[in-house]
Structure formats: structure tokens, C-alpha cells
Amino acid sequence: MTSTAAQQFTGRAARAARATRRGRRPGRRRERAWAYLMVAPMTIGLGVFYLWPIAQTFYYSFTSSGPFGGHTWTGTDNYKALADDPTVGQAVVNTLVYTGIQLVGVPLAILLAALLNQQNLRGRSVYRVIFFLPAVTMPVAMAMLWRWMYDGNYGLVNYLLSTVGIQGPHWASDPAYAPYALAAIGIWMSLGYNMVIFLAGLQGIPAEYYEAARMDGAGPVRTFLRITVPLLTPSIFFVTVLTLINSLQMFDLAYMMMSTPNAPAGNGNPALPKVRSIPYLFFQKSFVEHDIGFGAAVAFVLVGFIVLMTFIQFRLQKKWVHYA
């Protein structure tokens, strides 16, 4: 029984091998048909809901939309209007400030990961769960929570400050403080996520390096700077790119922090001009003011920034990222 099965098997294999030698495998065409069937759903879906919309948004950015729908070609008018609009410039500045502050969180995440990566550390997995918690919770809910803690009169933050004799501002509505208060939430939320990526990177560093450093009598700080950091640069690069891309698209936190009663887009909050990010401006123009053309142009300003930042990152990486 088994020998016939084996013969059958080798017979089939031999036929397949002969066919391959002749330059075509049996069922080549059938395999191709299967391939088309398997990519079809995703291709159609991405085409309809994502690829074609890129072209459409690009087209809209050169049009002006009428009150009853319909688009009129207006050339580069939207982009000219956008360049002259101070709120756009301010939104760009706000987005860059927010993004810059988020980058400050990256070294903090490395520090936490390095502390957690120490040998024989007790409670590592508990700490890891704690630090990661904000990354899995809904940003909308976290923004509400922080807004409550930032409350000028009854918030926990100002109460704690008052115990050391400082009178805190209205964090969520004072234009001088709101952008930084918002950025602090962003760091608080992404710290654990970044830390997990660094921890995985650290665990990939061979123990022999540390052993060698210890033999040479290097202290913990020196070891960290000379061994850990250089070998961690691929992770640092990844986290930096991720942080840039995510921070440039920040919307939820600002939206929740700025909203005021009966004006969900936050037009009543005096801090809005200093907090409004590019995505926020896009949302406001496109879906609150229904100025589709202008909104589409704002979207492409963001695309420009993301492409530029990513390009700079990838150019610079050759100088500082060490791939083992």
C-alpha cells in the first residue's frame, strides 16, 4: 500500500520536474488565475476607497465647490489662498511644535526600556503592562481625562501645584500653555508603545557585548552610551519615523481638548489658534465649513510635510543608523 502511494508520489514529482525542465509547470496558467482571484478583493477595495480618492482629493484641491455640489476648476487658487491665510501658517507651526515635543519623548522611552532590560529585574512584566496601558486606550477618552485633570479650578494638576504654592493656569484654554499641555498628553500616551519597541531592540543586542564591556571595566553609563545606544539605532530610527508620521497627523487629542459646548469644532476656545494642527484645520475646512477645495489643498500640505520629513529622515539615517 505504502509503496504504491510512494510510487504514485514520485511519479507525479517526476512528471512535474520534467514539465519544469521544459520551461513550464503544469497549471501555470491556473496558478495565475488563482493569483488574480486572491488579489482581486483587496485591489478593488483599495482602488475604490483609497487609490482613486488620492487622485480625487488632488483634483478637488484645484477646484472650488458650489453650495449644491459640483466643482469648478480654479487652478491654483486654493493654494494661493492657503499661502495667504495666516491660520494655515499657524497650523503648520503648531503641528511642527507638537511634533518636535513628541521627539523629546523618544529618549525617555529609551531610558525606561534600558531600566526594564536589566538582568534579574523583578516585576518587569508588571511595569511593562503599566507603561503600555495608555497606548491601548482610546485617545478621545484619554483627552477627556486629561482635560479634567487640567481643569483650571478643580483639576488635579493645579491642586498638586497649589500644594507647593504655585497657582496653575487654565491649561486647556490658555493659549500660552495649551499647546504644551496637549503635547504632554501625546508623550504620556506614546511612551509605553515606543518603550516596547526599544525593549525588543535591546533584547536583540547580544549579551557578549555587555560581557566584553564589563571585562574592560566600563561603567553602566559608558556601556549605555557606547554599546546600547549605537546598537539600538535601527529601533531609534524606526520610532523616530513613526513618531514624526503620527504626530504630524494628530487630531483626536486637539479636537477633544478644544471642543466647547455647542461648538464642537472648538471655535469658542481661545487657545484654538495655538493648538489647531494641520489635520484639525483640514477637518474644520472640509467638514464644518464645507470648503472642500480648500480642505483638499490643506490635506496636500500635510502630504508635503510628511514626504519631506520622511525623506530627510531616510537621507540622514546613513549618517547615524548602524545596521548590525
Binding site: 496558478e31 493569483a35 488579489v39 483599495l46 482629493t57 478637488y60 504630524l248
Partner: peptide, 27 residues
Amino acid sequence: MRFRGSGLLFGLFLSVLMVPGLVFLIP
């Protein structure tokens, strides 16, 4: 699997990956 146009198709998919989500939203 090998099929005609797979390189081009995959390139198009990657372009979606690099575009921020709000670009798709109006359409």
C-alpha cells in the same frame, strides 16, 4: 505567486501606505 502586473500593483498598494488618512476622507 507570479502574475503579470504584480510589481506595479504592489507599488500602488505601498503608495496608499505612505499617504496620510485624511487624504482619502473627502472622496
